[in-house]
């Protein structure tokens, strides 16, 4: 099963830091998502982005996690040479995580 089967996600950017939300479709899946989708697993899933530090915040009332990933964006949207300088597509990469 993929994370995509039980959660949805949106990416935001501020400077060279990306944040990716992971939101359970159904409240009853949140505890399992919280157990399995650790900061370490997210770091491993996004290992192509170097160097990154991942911090996880929990929002149980929303059934959501928020991952803050520093150093992820090649200097940020105003500096990066990347095609997707915002890193907008990263949420879709994260949702491909195997659960």
């Amino acid at each position: 099963m993929k994370l995509r089967d039980v959660a949805h996600s949106r990416t935001g950017d501020k400077g060279n830091t990306s944040n990716i939300s992971v939101i359970a479709y159904r409240p009853e899946d949140f505890s399992r998502i919280r157990e399995l989708v650790t900061a370490e697993r997210v770091r491993a899933q996004l290992e192509g982005l170097t160097p990154i530090q991942v911090t996880r915040y929990e929002l149980p009332k929303l059934g959501a996690l928020n991952f803050v990933i520093t150093g992820a964006l090649g200097g940020g949207v105003t500096r990066s040479l990347a095609l997707d300088a915002h890193g907008k597509a990263l949420s879709s990469i994260l949702l491909d995580l195997d659960l």
């Binding site: 830091t17 929303l62 959501a64 928020n66």
Partner: peptide, 25 residues
């Protein structure tokens, strides 16, 4: 929910000029 967390870092400490906002609850 997706928009609530858009471009948020620590949801309990959202830096704003008028206050430090807290969306954690």
């Amino acid at each position: 929910k997706e928009q609530l967390l858009y471009e948020i870092h620590d949801p309990a400490a959202y830096f704003q000029p008028d206050l430090t906002a807290d969306f954690s609850d």
